[in-house]
Design a binder for these strands. Structure first.
Ligand SMILES: [Mn+2]
Ligand SMILES: [Mn+2]
Length: 591
DNA sequence: ACCCACCACGCAGTA
DNA sequence: TCGCGTTTAG
DNA sequence: TACTGCGTGGTGCTAAACGCG
């Protein structure tokens, strides 16, 4: 792992990203996107580098005097070039109000978004796929990118603000900005000692990122962190032929879904029933699973906010459109609270027939019992496991988490004790199933920056890798799993993945676990995890303790007033059925 | 008005 | 002068 | 006891530079 990156590393990385997009997605690109790539390559090296530098910095506004880079010879020239090629706006004090207005800087309180390409529906090539009408909901008002008077003022230092206001005041920056906002644009801009640079074509670049990574949260720093050895990724076989997106409609959907979810996030900051109801009730129809899930999660969040604002009917209406947990659970709660027991029962029966996950199923059992009881019909409460509870009286210690307190308590009793929570069993799972997780399968690895295959958390993970999974369980019977886990731990450290949090494990803990935990216990835990990897990755007990000699026990620590959570309870039910030693340590403080 | 974001967890308040 | 939060770079 | 809202802490490096107060 090199400590140093080659000069121009960021530019190389961006070019790799572009090349990937062009090779793999040429047919899905719009005119504007293709032009963006072509125009970029027509730029001189300096201009290319400068544009990428801008992309890796916080924008969209920059001051030209803060764009000095050793490897970029003439910044001002590069800026001019970027400006005429349409990659940036670069405005100076010599530009008139009209120019500033174009980038959103104007005297009006809410300037019209002037940046035409930000709302433009980029026309598609005749050879390219048509964008479906279904996704043609107007979200231009949520995707406005552009500057503002305040954004320009944010570029100024305190001293520059003072000079601008011609006050000798010693007020704090925010106060100065508030005063300066009152000034007309012309006055603010009049003496700017630098050019204000605004990146353009961000829509296109965002789309390239989405096509490359398959999401919006990964970016160019992934390359850097990998190349520095900070977050190396496993080297798996990348499928040349299959892609994250197979048609333009899906790209548009996912992009729009991200925009909508962003916008909702902002709506939640100043919640207003009518706004939320109107916006969240009118999400576009989705075809792709990814966009659907994203929007459903957003629906759930918005509806939850409506609940908090006592808008129950509005919340119900939103939940009804969501196919993602806990939409039906929330509906049932609302229906019961509103005394619509008949409707609640209907929904509960649908949940029982086709539960979305175990959490929902459990809730359905419980609420069916409650509804029937309210209706005066005969019913029995669902049985729940009764974990063994140990009461512990300990001296409270400041600055120590209760888990750590109990861990030390066990240590004082001569136990080896580790605070592992979700790092242990999922970690062992990841180590044993490593080769399964990263095995070559059609259409699951698309780029070099994945923590696992795309189907990691849906049922296809198991169904399409059954023989490989069987092998792992065979190794558990034969005893070979120990070697497998050890060797993965040594050889794969510190590769990024979904299950192994390297920092939480060490060889001592690992060896003790391999020595003390019977293979069939591991097997039964792994089987339950595999039933639903998304949800059964968590809920594991806080501690694992090893008494002197032999054996082990899992300990869930509970401070005063804390109780088992639902997913923790489900694991305890599993431990009970499988004779896996586990108990709750209930702490009281001696005072 | 993009001030992480997401999630798991603990805790304290409420019925 | 110094500590703090933010931004940047590798 | 269940449910809820809220706060916190981890994940997902780290050193250096800069503006601020
Ligand atoms: Mn815990
Ligand atoms: Mn606990």
């Amino acid at each position: 792992m090199p400590d140093e990156l080659p000069i121009g590393y960021y530019h190389t990385n961006f070019c790799k990203l572009l090349a990937f997009v062009q090779n793999r997605y040429h047919d899905l690109l719009t005119h504007a996107e293709r032009a963006c790539i072509d125009d970029f390559h027509d730029l001189t090296p300096d201009a290319q580098r400068l544009f990428v530098r801008l992309l890796t910095r916080k924008g969209p506004l920059y001051r030209s005097d803060r764009l000095a880079y050793e490897e970029i010879g003439e910044t001002e020239k590069a800026l001019d070039e970027l400006s005429s090629a349409g990659f940036v706006f670069a405005l100076s004090r010599n530009d008139g109000e009209h120019e500033w207005h174009r980038i959103g800087v104007s005297n009006a309180e809410f300037p019209e978004a002037a940046d035409e390409e930000s709302k433009g529906n980029n026309g598609l090539d005749t050879e390219a796929v048509e964008v479906s009408q279904a996704s043609a909901v107007d979200v231009s008002d949520v995707s406005v990118e552009g500057a503002s008077k305040d954004a320009v003022l944010a570029l100024l230092t305190r001293h520059e603000l003072i000079a601008l206001l011609k006050t000798g005041s010693t007020s704090r920056r925010s106060q100065l900005v508030a005063e300066a906002t009152q000034l007309p644009v012309a006055a603010i801009v009049q003496h700017l000692p630098f050019r204000v640079v605004m990146t353009r074509r961000l829509q296109e670049v965002t789309c390239f990122r989405l096509l490359f990574f398959g999401n919006t949260h990964q970016n160019l720093t992934e390359f850097v962190l990998r190349d520095l050895g900070v977050a190396p990724y496993e080297t798996y076989t990348i499928d040349e032929t299959s892609r994250f997106f197979t048609c333009r409609d899906h790209v548009e959907e996912v992009r729009r879904a991200y925009e909508i979810s962003d916008h909702c996030h902002h709506l939640l900051e100043t919640p207003d029933v009518t706004h939320i109801e109107r916006f969240a009730g009118d999400f576009p129809e989705q075809i792709s699973v990814r966009a659907t899930r994203l929007l459903d999660r957003t629906r759930n969040q918005m509806a939850r906010q409506l609940e908090r604002m006592q808008a129950e009917d509005a919340a119900l209406a939103i939940y009804q459109q969501s196919q993602t947990h806990p939409a039906r659970e929330r509906q049932v709660r609302l229906l019961i609270a509103g005394d619509c027991l008949g409707d609640a029962l209907l929904l509960v029966n649908r949940m029982l027939a086709e539960p979305w996950n175990e959490d929902e199923l459990e809730f359905a059992y419980l609420s069916k019992h409650r509804i029937l009881k309210k209706l005066g019909q005969p019913t029995t409460p669902p049985v729940r496991c009764q974990p063994i509870v140990n009461d512990l009286v300990l001296e409270a210690e400041t600055d120590l988490r209760v888990e750590e307190l109990v861990r030390r308590h066990y240590e004082q009793q001569g136990y080896q004790a580790h605070y592992v929570e979700n790092a242990l069993f999922p970690g062992l799972f990841g180590l044993l199933f490593w080769d399964v997780i990263f095995s070559h399968q059609p259409g699951v690895f698309f780029n070099e920056f994945q923590r696992g295959p795309v189907d990691m958390f849906d049922s296809r993970f198991v169904s399409s890798r059954q023989p490989l999974i069987d092998e792992c369980f065979i190794s558990l019977s034969s005893g070979n799993y120990r070697h497998r886990i050890r060797s993965t731990f040594r050889h794969k450290f510190p590769a990024v993945n979904y299950f192994v949090h390297w920092g939480m494990l060490d060889e001592v803990l690992l060896e003790t676990c391999l020595d003390r935990i019977p293979a069939d216990h591991l097997a039964s835990v792994f089987r339950r995890m595999l039933r639903d990897l998304r949800n059964n990755r968590s809920g594991f007990p806080d501690l694992i303790v090893f008494p002197p000699g032999s054996g082990y026990e899992l300990i869930e620590v509970k401070g005063p007033g804390d109780a088992l959570q639902k997913h923790q309870r489900r694991w305890f039910g599993h431990f009970e059925r499988e004779n896996i030693p586990a108990r709750v340590a209930k702490v009281e403080y001696a005072s």
